[in-house]
Simulated scan of single mutants.
Amino acid sequence: MNWITNYVRPKINSMLGRPNRDVPENLWIKCPETGEMVFHRDLEENKWVIPASGYHMKMPAKARLKDLFDDGVYEALQQPKVAQDPLKFRDSKKYTDRLKDSRAKTDLEDTIVAGVGKMRGVKIVAVVHEFNFMGGSLGIAAGEAIIKAFERAIAEKCPLVMFPASGGARMQEGILSLMQLPRTTVAVEMLKEAGQPYIVVLTNPTTGGVTASYAMLGDIHLAEPGAEICFAGKRVIEQTIREKLPEGFQTSEYLLEHGMVDLVVKRHDIPDTLARLLKILMKKPATASVTNDALAIAAQ
């Protein structure tokens, strides 16, 4: 029994004549790095970045799209209709029940959210993983949504920007989820054949089959600070090779040092950086000064 919650608070409320309202548990968010408590509205206003430490929390997919596009205005792409439970999978819980729970929690059909709009005046298609929907896992619905987004970018003759955040392929769909790896890879190649840029912004975490396919096939790879980017987890690798891995292994900063990532960019700077890079790649006049980093990346 929690003495303060169950006894002290009701007693104070009754003395003051106030009704005993339940207080939401997510009003305060704890920084994983420093332990600092941040009020949820302050965190949202700062784009889910802890103000003091600069730690980048996971950002909801719809909020990221709204932040990315000019004035938060974009056309949302519809989620394609696919088979919901092709393998009739069940572990400790039915797969259909897991889908229902995730849909109720996120108000999304599946893990992929995509939109078309203008970012700093540049028309793009943006695709974002919602990690809160079954760990952003890649299944049939996600794969189909990604392919449709690439097809829309080709039809609109505009670039595509990908924001992966995933634990990998969705085990409840077995081999059908793994089939999405080559399917999305083909979609990437179609966009490149159409002559349109493809930029990936790696967020925390980007792992498994997603890393093994479209997440590492961009013309340019940006990453948010501190993001975990890998195929297999650190513990699995250490147990396999029986060696201790370097400090910071599989973080975006480590990958930047070893040539796997082109630039680590803070969340607040991502729209401007993307716009500058795309204008260079598309040979459009820049409306703002182009950073040396952007020029160096585009020249690679």
Rank of each mutant, 00 (worst) to 15 (best):
261 V>D: 05
291 T>P: 00
280 I>H: 01
235 R>T: 14
259 G>Q: 08
234 K>F: 00
291 T>D: 10
271 P>E: 07
288 A>H: 09
268 H>Q: 14
264 V>T: 10
243 E>K: 15
237 I>Y: 00
226 G>N: 02
244 K>S: 15
282 M>R: 13
276 R>K: 14
291 T>E: 11
263 L>E: 12
292 N>S: 11
285 P>M: 02
248 G>C: 09
287 T>P: 02
266 K>N: 14
244 K>D: 15
230 C>I: 05
269 D>Y: 00
272 D>V: 15
242 R>A: 10
251 T>I: 08
283 K>L: 05
258 H>G: 03
233 G>P: 01
244 K>Q: 13
261 V>R: 01
278 L>C: 11
298 A>W: 02
258 H>L: 07
242 R>M: 12
227 A>T: 04
234 K>I: 13
224 E>M: 10
225 P>V: 09
225 P>A: 07
249 F>C: 12
290 V>Q: 06
297 I>G: 05
291 T>V: 08
252 S>H: 07
250 Q>A: 15
281 L>G: 01
236 V>E: 12
223 A>L: 10
282 M>G: 05
233 G>Q: 06
271 P>L: 10
265 V>M: 09
240 T>N: 07
272 D>G: 11
237 I>G: 02
275 A>Y: 00
249 F>R: 03
249 F>S: 09
262 D>T: 08
239 Q>L: 13
249 F>K: 07
233 G>L: 08
279 K>R: 15
240 T>D: 07
262 D>R: 09
268 H>P: 00
284 K>G: 02
254 Y>H: 11
239 Q>Y: 12
294 A>W: 00
229 I>A: 02
235 R>A: 13
263 L>Q: 14
273 T>G: 04
280 I>Q: 11
294 A>Q: 14
287 T>L: 10
242 R>C: 03
228 E>L: 14
298 A>H: 04
265 V>Y: 05
278 L>G: 08
226 G>I: 04
228 E>A: 13
277 L>H: 04
257 E>G: 02
227 A>L: 07
252 S>E: 05
227 A>I: 08
230 C>R: 14
237 I>M: 11
296 A>Y: 06
274 L>E: 07
284 K>I: 08
254 Y>A: 09
243 E>F: 03
233 G>C: 03
257 E>F: 04
260 M>N: 06
237 I>H: 01
250 Q>V: 12
266 K>V: 08
277 L>E: 09
242 R>I: 03
296 A>Q: 10
283 K>P: 01
